[in-house]
């Protein structure tokens, strides 16, 4: 269950989701991934570390470079796609509750 929570944390961050999308189309080095973001290189490295630790990314040595691959099997395995769907409803329902509490006090 520890692993499952880590994956949800990993994809809760919009930058990490954008990284996953980037490497989904082609494997890339840390440098070429970081070039796509307006964040400090160490921050991108931290994101890559988190994504690698929960196995959403895999590293592969090619000559002197390390390339990051998207691990689609892991994505499917943990059914991570559900989390943004859940958050969408959670946000809506929080709003519903907040709106209706006003009606409660009006009564």
């Amino acid at each position: 269950m520890q692993l499952r929570r880590d994956v949800f944390q990993a994809i809760a961050d919009p930058t990490r989701r954008a990284i996953l999308l980037l490497v989904a189309s082609q494997s890339m080095t840390a440098g070429s991934i970081a070039a796509n973001f307006d964040t400090a290189r160490p921050t991108v490295s931290k994101h890559l570390q988190i994504l690698t630790e929960c196995e959403l990314l895999k590293q592969e040595q090619q000559g002197r470079e390390i390339y990051y691959h998207f691990n689609a099997a892991k994505m499917k395995e943990v059914a991570e796609f559900i989390e943004p769907f859940r958050l969408l409803w959670d946000t809506r329902f929080n709003k519903l509750e907040q709106v209706m509490k006003q009606y409660k006090t009006k009564k």
């Binding site: 919009p14 989701r17 954008a18 973001f37 307006d38 796609f81 943004p84 769907f85 958050l87 969408l88």
Partner: peptide, 24 residues
């Protein structure tokens, strides 16, 4: 059903990309 479940995930990625584009 799977497509409907994935929709918010895909939209989240698009939003992240749009923000990136704005920054760029």
């Amino acid at each position: 059903r799977d497509n409907m479940l994935k929709l918010p995930f895909a939209q989240g990625i698009n939003m992240a990309h749009n923000r990136l584009q704005e920054i760029v």
